[in-house]
Design a protein around this nucleic acid. Structure first.
Lengths: 206, 206
DNA sequence: GGGCTAACTGACGCATCAGTCAAACATGTG
DNA sequence: CACATGTTTGACTGATGCGTCAGTTAGCCC
């Protein structure tokens, strides 16, 4: 009874979502500043006027598209992680889901890189960025704590510190993969992170 | 006897350098795509025509400015590191020099973020980027090897792996500092990296 | 049907810039 | 001085793209 019927979801909020969807993909492919409103409109099969009907200006579309992408990725991630109960397995699953293979995940990493570059230069991007980043660190921290409760991770590890280290390591490795640093492949990255988890949390655990 | 006299260094190659100097600073402050040729000219106290006299197009100025900045930073770093003979101290010195405090070093980190974002999107930036990135990894690797020869770093550590980990960790931490992630300060970053060095290389060394 | 509103269109106005070019200026050389 | 070469200028042009707006269509209520 909120608004529309179930029979016709194509409208209203749906249009906004489709615009944001097109926008973040374009940002991932071409970079933040290379996206044109007309490109977005073309991908959506609509006109530039419509984009402006839903968003006051280009900046709003771009900023919201970044959020939109990160939000969706986080939701997808959460769902998949919840299915894994063993903390060690869950952490490995998280690592696996974060590997910037070609396709969706790589595009999402591309978005993060754009986000970082933008947040460094324009402080107005930081609040939103930091909120999302905090979520991602919290995900790691929670898994560490869960593992400690389950008795499979070392009890003397500080979950907060581990989260700080693992997120830094992951981001740094992802940069090397995305920029094509020789020797840093998806495989190397996985190994790097799995080793870290083993050394930091598993080795010598009771 | 190569070209000019020492009495008058203002000319020729100097102009180029001043343009590149102005450009990389502008990139660091405003971001790659927000730099205008007219801004560069204004900072240099010259005209847009002159910028085009020395560089065929905007892209050339920007790409060369990135290289210029990284080159100079690397040279400065090398000079300062060479003065420290103990490998452990040299590594700590390197970490210290890399901390993105306000000013010069922070601006240089801003350049790296821009470089990463650009290299991810535009493959033509990767060769140059990777060359510079390899240098930075090599610096770390050499220090590790030196420490092993000096007998102050664990002999069982793989210098290549340590370099991979330390560079990833550094880049990831720097991102958090630059984007203003709460809890990640210069101090936290230093602690993070120093702890890593201790655990990975110093603890239990003979 | 008539009137109302929300959704949508796309041509246009306007600002912004990269790059060009002819002219001016500087410096050196015979 | 005449001339050549190298450097600098800034007005101009052409392209691009954001945002606007007058006009159109579609749905809905009375």
């Amino acid at each position: 009874m909120t608004t529309g019927t179930k029979a016709e979801p194509r409208s209203d909020e749906d249009r906004r979502a489709r615009i944001l969807d097109a926008t973040w993909q374009l940002i991932a492919e071409r970079g933040f500043h290379a996206v044109r409103i007309s490109d977005v409109a073309k991908v959506c099969g609509t006109s530039t006027g419509t984009v402006h009907y839903y968003f006051p200006g280009k900046n709003d579309v771009l900023a919201e598209a970044l959020k939109y992408c990160v939000d969706r990725a986080f939701a997808r991630q959460s769902t998949q992680l919840r299915a894994v109960h063993n903390a060690h397995e869950r952490l490995l699953k998280l690592i696996d889901m974060q590997l910037p293979r070609v396709g969706q995940v790589r595009d999402e990493w591309s978005i993060w890189l754009q986000y970082w570059a933008e947040a460094t230069i324009r402080p107005e991007f930081r609040p939103a960025h930091n909120e999302y980043y905090a979520r991602w660190q919290e995900t790691v921290r929670r898994i560490v704590q869960r593992g400690q409760r389950q008795g499979i991770f070392r009890a003397d590890a500080d979950p907060h510190v581990v989260a700080l280290r693992l997120t830094s390591l992951t981001d740094g490795a992802a940069i090397q993969v995305l920029t094509g640093v020789p020797g840093m492949t998806i495989g190397t990255m996985r190994e790097l992170l799995v080793d870290f988890v083993h050394q930091e949390l598993v080795a010598g655990a009771r």
